[in-house]
């Protein structure tokens, strides 16, 4: 259970989040949509405990993250997996050490078990046998898969995805979407996906929320969002630019005046 209340955040006195309210239930698959630069990544980074809000509350399983310092946040971060926009693989490490990172850091499992877990995880994301490759040798889609394996290996209960399909061709994007859905259902993880790709949003989400001007504008099941009468939402999901919308409006006004 994630509870967000009146979350506000500004960067250099430019407000980005201006009172976000959002509750996310366990095993829910929430997709947060919104235009580029509207603060989706910032919101996700708050949930991951990577940024401190200026004001407001953020609770995960009843525990408030806002007063915790960097080290005190670590137990909560272990419950959460994050797939970053550019995958953020450690370039100095090969695929095996990237995926095994959190297990090697925890130092509770022996090497044979870690090898086996990594092999299983790589198989789950469709990257079997790639342990020896360096991140620089991988394509964008492959990097995302490895990033996914790295985030999932310590079996988090919450997975956060920052634009998982942006910059990928439609086929690879589709396979990533399927993977997210499969992992969410198979491991029963609470899934939060930030995207502006509506295909992806309808495919993985069982709830969609739209972030607009630093607030959650609407939130509901995918078909509710599709039928939502709010013109901002309609224009966004149908990819109508603001200019085109303004033109349509003025044309309609002209038509009605004559």
């Amino acid at each position: 259970m994630i509870e967000i209340q009146q979350l506000c955040k500004s960067f250099k006195s430019v407000p980005v989040l201006q009172g976000v309210d959002l509750d996310i239930a366990d095993s829910e698959r929430l997709v947060i949509i919104g235009g580029s630069g509207c603060g989706k990544s910032v919101l996700l980074r708050h949930i991951a405990g990577l940024v401190k809000p200026d004001s407001g509350r953020l609770k995960i399983d009843g525990q408030d993250l806002t007063p915790l310092n960097e080290r005190a946040l670590n137990p909560i971060r272990r419950k959460i997996g994050v797939l970053f926009q550019g995958a953020a693989l450690f370039d100095s490490l090969d695929v095996f050490h990237n995926v095994a990172f959190s297990l090697l850091e925890e130092r509770t499992l022996g090497m044979p078990e870690i090898r086996q877990r990594v092999a299983e995880m790589l198989a789950a994301v469709g990257m079997s046998g790639q342990e020896g490759k360096k991140p620089a040798e991988l394509s964008g889609g492959m990097r995302k898969r490895i990033g996914l394996a790295r985030a999932l290996i310590h079996r988090p209960r919450i997975m956060l995805y920052d634009e998982p399909t942006t910059g990928l061709d439609p086929q690879i994007a589709d396979s990533i979407n399927r993977l997210i859905l499969k992992l969410a259902l198979e491991f029963n993880v609470t899934t939060i996906v930030v995207t502006h790709d509506m295909v992806s949003a309808y495919m993985v989400g069982n709830r969609i929320a739209m972030l607009h001007k630093g607030k959650i504008l609407v939130s509901g099941a995918p078909d509710q969002i599709q039928q939502c009468s709010n013109p901002i939402v309609q224009n966004f999901i149908h990819g109508v630019s603001e200019e085109a919308a303004a033109m349509k409006m003025s044309r309609r006004e002209n038509a009605s005046s004559t």
Partner: peptide
């Protein structure tokens, strides 16, 4: 090295994996 890790979110990845 550290600067590149910072701008490519590798430092945030480190933090999200519970490593200071």
């Amino acid at each position: 090295e550290i600067g590149t890790m910072r701008v490519t979110e590798q430092i945030d990845a480190l933090r999200s994996l519970a490593v200071h």
